[in-house]
Design a protein around this nucleic acid. Sequence first.
DNA 1: CTTTTATATATGCTTATACGTATATTAAGT
DNA 2: ACTTAATATACGTATAAGCATATATAAAAG
Lengths: 115, 115
Amino acid sequence: MSPTQFFKCLSDDTRLRCVTLLQKEGKLCVCELTTALALSQPKISRHLASLRQCGLLQDSREGQWVYYQISAKLPDWAIPLLNNALAAVEQSDLFKSDLERLQQMINRPDTQMCC
Amino acid sequence: MSPTQFFKCLSDDTRLRCVTLLQKEGKLCVCELTTALALSQPKISRHLASLRQCGLLQDSREGQWVYYQISAKLPDWAIPLLNNALAAVEQSDLFKSDLERLQQMINRPDTQMCC
DNA sequence: CTTTTATATATGCTTATACGTATATTAAGT
DNA sequence: ACTTAATATACGTATAAGCATATATAAAAG
């Protein structure tokens, strides 16, 4: 992955929010991301697929769920960029809402459904 | 300027090369950038204009020449990202060639013309 | 084996990007 | 004034991005 491609990955709100959420939380399934960002499942899925194809994310299936995380094979130069991207995004209200919806979802004991 | 806009600025080869050259060299005029990147003047000029409109660059006219540099009013979160970007790009052969052409141009005493 | 949940992809469409070429503008020199 | 160098913009076009909606696949549950 080239630096230009890397920046293109982060140049869309949906993708940037997914990547920074994963950078902060480590590992999330598609429906968690869908709920956190409050966007349609196909939209999230499409962006995750493109991030995976670029090599920024990797996925792993666990039963019905597909979990995404930051790829373990990222080039060295990408790591500090991701950390600083997270620092830049964390301040925003949009990202705070994402985190809040994610927490609400995790702290909900009333159902075995994911979403 | 939002983080997303910032990353969009760096998501194109021409713009990324301009920005990292300016990050390294401090201040360059359009024809120096045109020569360094070995691209057409309108192409460089158009990208510089878009970077200026985003607030990533600022320009200053000195006689015939218009100099561009990284904006002094960048948000705090952008500075480390620009340094990371430079570190990521500096390794590439493309960027090394840009620097080389720039040096050749500066060390050329045979003409008063810029380009 | 049908249903449900989770995820992925296809289709049709609209908008945004990037480009080359031509031309306009601005400043300086003659 | 006229010319030249430096820079900016306009125009037409080709391609890519992004979206909503519908549909397909995959795994688990009943």
